[in-house]
Structures are given as C-alpha cells and as structure tokens.
Amino acid sequence: MSIASNTPSAFRRTGRRRAAFQEKLVKRIFFLCALVSVLTTLGILGTLLNEAIKFFLDVPVWSFLTGTQWSPLFSPPYQSFGVLPLVAGTLLITTVAAAVALPVGLATAIFLSEYAPERVRKTIKPILEVLAGIPTVVYGFFALTFVTPMLQKVLPELLVFNALSAGLVMGLMIVPMVSSLSEDAMLAVPRSLREAAYALGATRIQVSLRVVVPAALSGIVAAFILALSRAIGETMLVTIAAGATPKLTLNPMESIQTMTAYIVQVSLGEAVHGSLEFRTIFAVGFLLFIMTLVMNVLGYFVVRRWREKY
C-alpha cells in the first residue's frame, strides 16, 4: 500500500476500479455457467422423481422391481409392470460388451503404454479417439447389417435382432474409453518402478502385468466402471440392433429389450401422454439413473480401497 501511495500519478485509479469490476463480473458469469449444469441435473432428477412417484402410486414398487413380466402397453388383463425383463436385457448386453471391452481395452492400453514405440503410439491413439467419436446410430446399423449377418453364418439360429451382436458392437464401441483412460493411468506410473523391475531381470510382460497394472489399478478400475455405465445407458445401438421384445433371459442369441430401448419406444408415441403407460418410462428411467449412480459410487470406493499408492 505504501508503495502505491508513494508512486506518482502514472497509475490511473479509475482504470483499476474498472478492472476490479470486470473481475467481479467475470466471476459471476463463470459461476452462472457452472450453475447451469447443476440446475439441469436437479431439474432432470425432479422430473424423473415427480413422474415416477405418480407411477408408483398405481403400481407398487415391489411388484415393479420383482415382476417377471413386462407388458405395460397391453390391455388390462394382460398388462404387467415387472421390470426384471428389461433389467435382464440391459445387464445381458452390458455383460457381453464387458467381455469384449475389458480384455481388449486393457490389452490395448498395455500395448500402447509399455510396448509401442512413440511413433506407433502417436498413430494409434488418434485412430482410437476417432472410434470414440462415431455416432452410436452408426454402430447400431453396423451391428444390424454387418455383424448380425456375419454371426448368422456361424450361428444359423441367431435372430435378426439379438443381444449378442448388439453387445459385441457395444463392446467395440467402449474399447477406446477403456484403453484411453487405462493408458493414462499406466503412463502415470513412475519410470523408477519399471526400472526397479527390469533391473531384477523381469521381462516386459512381467513388468507390465506385475508392476504397472497393479500400480495403475485404481485408474483402470475407474475406466472399467465408466465404460460400463456408458454401456448401461447406451440407447441408439440397442434400439436398432437388439430388438423390442422384453424377455427374462440370459441367452444372448435371443431378441431382447433394454431399459433404454423401451424408453425410446414409448417416447416415440406408443402411449398417451400422461397415462400410466406413459409414466412407465419415468419409473424405468429412474431405475436406470439409480443403477448408473450405484456403479459410479461403487467405482469411487473400489478405487479408494484398492489403490496401490506410489
């Protein structure tokens, strides 16, 4: 302060006051931008809850969660609100996708971080990122018009709409997510740990699997969980390729319906606005929200528990 008061009038105080005002204004604007996403989340949650509660006034929560028959669009004697077939369909697709994406994604990440020379890495990474940017509707048609016919040559009894093909392609779709995030975690493992292992006579694969992967495990698990939440919530691909027949089955050869695909079906106008049938989508949507939320929270704790700190 004393320095400022001793300095002659080369500084214009009005200018400084304006800068302070600008600073305040900018801070406000940034805060409002941050607020937008928070308010949106709250708004979505509010709408979901509001409509879901109205739904559960008519259909008991328990019969919704444990019912094995999903036929809300049928007329009353055959109408049934058991959500399990949709949950089973969703988990079936997610399982198939995970069976593809986790090993392939992890292997890709290990290759990129431990084996690939700099030049190869710089070529493959952007290609993977392009893969992540393809619209999901394209993946849907890829599954329906390319993968399914190909699978039918090997498995003749495979239906046109089936969980297997949609799950496999979903797996390919989330590989970049798994590999990119896992690789980031592996690159963050200090070089000194790799050197320690090499200096003991470890081979490259031993260094990768016994040192780098365990040390990066928290990041890898986080990548898995994010990718799986993505698979659970994915809509377009399964709507196009997996079918629209809610069925409580674990057989990936069959046509099924996922929670998201059901929401699309009803949103496209199969039920009257405001009717009980229409409200099912909010109940299903709310359950979907809970499922991904649980995944993310679970991921958070798993990561904290398993962390190999370095």
Binding site: P190, S192, L193, E195, A196, A197, A199, V211, P214, A215, E308, K309, Y310
Partner: peptide, 10 residues
Amino acid sequence: MVFQKPNPFP
C-alpha cells in the same frame, strides 16, 4: 541394481 532414490514397489 540399486537406484538413487529408494524405489520400492507399492
């Protein structure tokens, strides 16, 4: 080999 900074595995 033993390195400059202790580098035990986690």
